[in-house]
Simulated assay, not measured.
Amino acid sequence: MIVSFIETAGFGYEIMYPGAAQPVPVSGGSWSPPDAPKRATTYILIATDLNTRQQHFLTTTVQVRNPILEALTAIKGVTTPWVQGATKGDGAFTFSKGAMHVRREFGSQEGGALYAGGIRTEYVSGPNDADGDITFLPGEVKVWRNRSSNDLGTLYVGEAVFNGVATGYVKGLRDGDGDITFTQGGVKVWRTRSSGEPGALYAGEATFNDVATGYVKGLNVTDGALTFVWAGAKVVASPGSPYSGVLHAGRFENEPQ
C-alpha cells in the first residue's frame, strides 16, 4: 500500500497510524507502511506549517478484503454465508436455508467432523429423507423408521451391555433365524418370527428348578427320547415313535409299593 500526496514548500509531513508510537516523518510525496494492513486501518497525514506551526490533517481509512482480527465481538449477531479455519485445508461451516453444514474444507461437499464436549438436541436424523431418526424423551431414546413415521426403526450395534432390556421379542439377524417372544411369566422360542412352530434352544449347560416339557431327546437324529405320560415316563426310539427305546443305567432301584 502506498500513500501519495503533493508536497508544498514550507511544510513538514508526518503520518500517524495504529502501531506507531509517534508520528512518522515522511518526504518525497509518498509513503508505505512497514507492514501491509491486516484489517481496516485509519492513516492520518499531518501537514505542519514550519513558520506558524499550524497543523492540517488528512484522514483516510483503508479497507481490507480479508481482514485478520485478534478478537471479534458482535452485539447483534454475525451474518455470513460461510466460516472457515485460518489455515488452508481447515474445516468450514456453510449455511443454507434452515440448515448449517460442517464441510471437510471450504468449497468441498464432503461432510466434516464436529467435535464437542456434549450436544443437546431434540432429535438426530440421517442426511436422506428416508433415513432413520432418533428422538430423545425424558429418561429414554426412541429409534424411528424415518422422521415423519411413527414406526419403530432398527438399531444395529456390534455389542451392547444393558442393566435391563424390555422388549416384545428377540430375533436373529437373518430372515430364517429363530425368535424369542415374551409371555406373561415366561418366554417362548419359535422356529421363525412368522412361524407358529416351536424352535430349538441350544445351551452348553442349563440349570432349572423345574422343567415342564412334552419330551426330552438326544442331540442326534437317531437318539432316543424320554416322553412323559400320565403319572410316568416312557423311553421311546425317537420322539413320536411307537417303538420302545432302551434305558441304560448303572443302577436302578424301585421304591417299595
Rank of each mutant, 00 (worst) to 15 (best):
T8L: 05
T8C: 04
T8A: 11
A9I: 08
A9R: 08
A9H: 04
A9N: 08
G10C: 12
G10S: 11
F11R: 12
F11S: 09
F11P: 00
F11N: 14
F11W: 14
F11D: 05
G12N: 12
G12A: 11
G12K: 07
G12S: 14
Y13A: 11
Y13W: 13
Y13K: 12
Y13F: 10
Y13T: 07
Y13S: 09
Y13R: 11
E14K: 14
E14M: 07
I15M: 15
I15K: 05
I15V: 15
I15F: 02
I15N: 04
I15G: 06
I15E: 05
M16D: 15
M16K: 13
M16V: 11
M16H: 02
M16I: 13
M16G: 06
Y17H: 15
Y17G: 04
Y17N: 08
Y17E: 00
Y17Q: 08
Y17W: 03
Y17A: 15
Y17K: 06
Y17R: 11
P18G: 06
P18E: 07
P18Q: 02
P18W: 03
P18C: 13
G19K: 01
G19C: 07
G19P: 00
G19T: 07
A20R: 02
A20V: 10
A20L: 02
A20M: 09
A20E: 06
A20G: 04
A20K: 13
A21D: 07
A21S: 15
A21E: 10
A21Q: 13
A21R: 13
A21T: 14
Q22A: 10
P23E: 01
P23K: 13
P23H: 03
P23N: 06
V24P: 00
V24K: 01
V24L: 00
V24M: 10
V24E: 09
V24H: 04
V24S: 04
P25Y: 05
P25K: 14
P25T: 08
P25S: 14
P25L: 14
P25C: 08
V26H: 02
V26S: 01
V26A: 05
V26C: 02
S27P: 00
S27N: 14
S27A: 15
S27D: 02
S27Q: 14
G28L: 05
G28K: 02
G28E: 07
G28Y: 04
G29E: 07
G29C: 02
G29Q: 01
S30D: 08
S30L: 09
S30F: 10
S30Q: 13
S30E: 11
S30H: 14
S30G: 02
S30N: 11
W31A: 08
W31H: 14
W31N: 14
W31K: 13
S32C: 03
S32L: 03
S32T: 15
S32F: 00
S32V: 15
P33I: 03
P33E: 10
P33V: 06
P33R: 09
P33T: 10
P33Y: 09
P34F: 08
P34R: 10
P34K: 05
P34H: 12
P34V: 09
D35R: 15
D35P: 00
D35I: 11
D35T: 15
D35W: 01
A36S: 12
A36Y: 12
A36G: 05
A36T: 08
P37T: 07
P37G: 11
P37D: 12
